[in-house]
Write a protein that binds this DNA or RNA. Structure first.
Lengths: 223, 223
DNA sequence: CTCAAACTAATAGCAATACTATCTTTTTTA
DNA sequence: TAAAAAAGATAGTATTGCTATTAGTTTGAG
């Protein structure tokens, strides 16, 4: 028994909704696999088309370019985080516990079986950590932001900021602290794995490091 | 009377040292101008060659590809930060004042006239904020890290960690906090400008926002 | 039913990008 | 002053990013 998670991803992200056809869903699923395997710079629509047994032109009918496909994947992640936070925090009324749960969600692989979607969560996590900043670190940022494609990220930060203010109503920078926590969760995971000298992790605490570091930081900042 | 700042940038970053010839220095200077103007994705060696009145082949004699040129520019920035910190902190013995000065350096444009170099510091700052993460968020991270090209960043974090420990010897994550402060300085500046909903900045506090936010955060974390 | 409109897929092709190779000329320096 | 090194000119290749055209397939109005 499965139900299908479907998120209202901004329509200007795609040309044709990939969620409405078999080939569209293949583009997302195998897109995640291939971006994970090759890295975003080496990923191309041609390689993706070969992977899923179709042609480049078909992929271009769904997405204007590979940046838009990445934006779709990362948007899906933002919506999924938002959904997970709602779901996990709903019966949790202590803001401290809520904040701990938020960091838990941000620093661990997304749970595998929630929804009928079969995206590889390990790969999705790798992409989020290594590639997500590339969706906004582009010269076209002002025009794509005007399309509203970052709304999900902004909503997520607003939700986190609300919980922070419930914990400490006098804290002045809850939105910045939220985006800091999200971004730091990503690149501290990356640094632990690839540039450990930029962290204080070691082989023993590696696995829970980002969680422990961020929890310590968050509660010290919020007091 | 000018003296020339020269930093020991890792030799594997370039094929031929751009600092040793006129055309090499032009590649860096106009490279900074063009990457700032076009964004890293739209920047090409062909466009750079036209800009400085030479050919693509000549630029390729200095750098293997545009990623290496960016790495050179960002390495120069890391060395310059390190140098600036030494210079500004040398007669400052209070760790609290030192930490405040470090954040000041990280959240403001680099000073213009230090050294004989004529890189445009405003453009360099834009590049650091918008493009620097692209030097390590690549599939080849493990092999390029082995070349030692990130040593300057690691040394910088070590230096910052030392000051943090002087201020609070019991803090457990000084290296992570250093990289967090550096990265957060970059993207909070970016967010204030392009995605202000991810921050708590407004038109009135915009200019000093990153500084104020990070100073508050740092001293709350260190206690 | 059926025939045209609309939608989808497949093929081809083009311009830009990311290089590499070669050969000539100029500059350096031993 | 010869030879080594650097720069310039020119050409060429494979890949990338994207578009145009055509062929086939589905849909739905009469």
């Amino acid at each position: 028994m499965e139900f299908k998670l479907s998120f209202p991803i901004n329509e200007s992200v795609y040309i044709k909704n990939p969620d409405h056809s078999d080939i569209g869903r293949k583009i997302i699923k195998h897109g995640i696999d291939l971006i994970n395997e090759l890295g975003f710079e080496h990923f191309t629509f041609k390689k993706l088309a070969i992977e899923i047994g179709t042609t480049e032109a078909t992929v271009y009918r769904y997405f204007e370019n590979k940046h838009r496909l990445l934006l779709y994947i990362i948007s899906w992640y933002w919506f999924y985080l938002d959904y997970l936070m709602d779901y996990r925090l709903q019966n949790m009324h202590d803001p401290k516990k809520q904040l701990e749960e938020i960091i838990q969600i941000l620093t661990h692989e997304l749970p595998e079986s929630s929804g009928g979607l079969d995206y590889n969560k390990k790969y999705l996590n790798n992409i989020v950590v290594a590639e997500s900043s590339k969706v906004y670190l582009v010269k076209e940022i002002e025009s794509i932001n005007q399309e509203g494609v970052f709304k999900a990220y902004k909503d997520l930060c607003r939700k986190m900021a609300t919980v922070m203010l419930a914990y400490n109503p006098t804290y002045k920078y809850p939105h910045s602290l939220s985006s800091t926590i999200v971004e730091t969760a990503h690149y501290q995971q990356y640094f632990v794995q690839y540039l450990p000298r930029l962290t204080d992790a070691n082989d023993a605490n590696k696995k829970e490091y980002a969680n422990v570091y961020l929890t310590d930081l968050l509660f010290k900042v919020l007091g």
